[in-house]
Design a protein around this nucleic acid. Structure first.
Lengths: 168, 168
DNA sequence: TACTGATCATCAGTATACTGTCAAGTTGTC
DNA sequence: GACAACTTGACAGTATACTGATGATCAGTA
């Protein structure tokens, strides 16, 4: 016999992992439905925001900012460039890097989409009462923050060191 | 000037959608790390559970049970079949369908993996205090349940009707 | 200066997760 | 039985989201 607490966690429809996946599905579906006219995906929007906050950054910095691995950000960046929303030019100081910047069209699109995106964020939480929304967001934020290092693509801001640089 | 409540929701790192995506990343990473020896993905495990609970079901029923669209479940099912964890045979009553069942190997693998999967579910919530975990899971469950219809692949159990069948 | 280790972007490969379309098969109605 | 409406699984196409490898470049040391 299993204990009460263990039972639930082994049932698919009560498992945290499963419910988290479904909530993500829902969030993406709401995003796509509400921002249809802008032809943007959640990640593309996040990348645009990231570039706006870090003008001239390289792809790795952007990947760390949106918490994504470099391969995936490369794909996203390519699509944004092909839509002429961003520009990519080789870095002068470090010629391995490609420096990223919004184009005027990109800047305009982010502004235009922002209120729809804000609406999506509220729609996700809409089923909860206001006090519950605050509680859920607090718990969610802490869960993500404290589990950050378990992610394969952890958030890193301002060139935080992952490991101390080798000194010997 | 924006109101206080609106400010946070527009900042990438506080946005519900972004945090949900990151928590899902973390959950998947933990799953893959803890179940490495079983060579299973979260979805493959969910599908195996779904087939075990619905022996002889068709792919659409399974898709509804794990809350996934039919195209994605088709890919998952194909991989499970190629690993000889499930069997697929044409339905006798309805020859469009493929009926799904676990093989002995599949049954054995689900059992073997279940404690590792259970451990993952607890690891996801580990940063929270026990009372907070209960609260988070309650809010998460309600959010998913009440937003179910917004998903492109909503959960449907036991052949729930999506729309009333045309009668005229 | 040559060497070592690290980093940057890219590539190939795998697995979700959807859209839309299609042929085959089923069901309800007349 | 004929017909229309629908369902089932398959397929092509797009976009995440990762792994592991590689070549180019950079930074620190001997």
């Amino acid at each position: 016999m299993l204990e009460k607490g263990t039972m639930a966690i082994l049932e698919l429809h009560s498992a945290p992992g499963h419910l988290i996946r479904r909530l993500q599905q829902i969030a993406v579906a709401l995003f796509m439905a509400e921002t249809r006219t802008f032809d943007l995906t959640p990640l593309q929007y996040a990348a645009l925001l990231g570039i706006r906050e870090n003008p001239g950054c390289d792809q790795t910095t952007l990947a760390n900012y949106v918490a994504l691995d470099r391969s995936t950000i490369a794909d996203v960046v390519e699509r944004l460039e092909s839509k002429a929303l961003i520009r990519r030019k080789p870095g002068a100081r470090d010629r391995r890097t490609k420096r990223l910047d919004l184009t005027p069209a990109g800047r305009k699109l982010v502004s235009a989409a922002s209120s729809a995106v804000g609406a999506v964020q509220e729609m996700i939480l809409a089923p909860l009462k206001p006090a519950e929304r605050v509680m859920f967001m607090d718990l969610l934020r802490r869960l993500v923050h404290l589990n950050n290092e378990h992610s394969r693509a952890p958030l890193r801001l301002n060139g935080e060191e992952t490991r101390p640089r080798r000194t010997a």
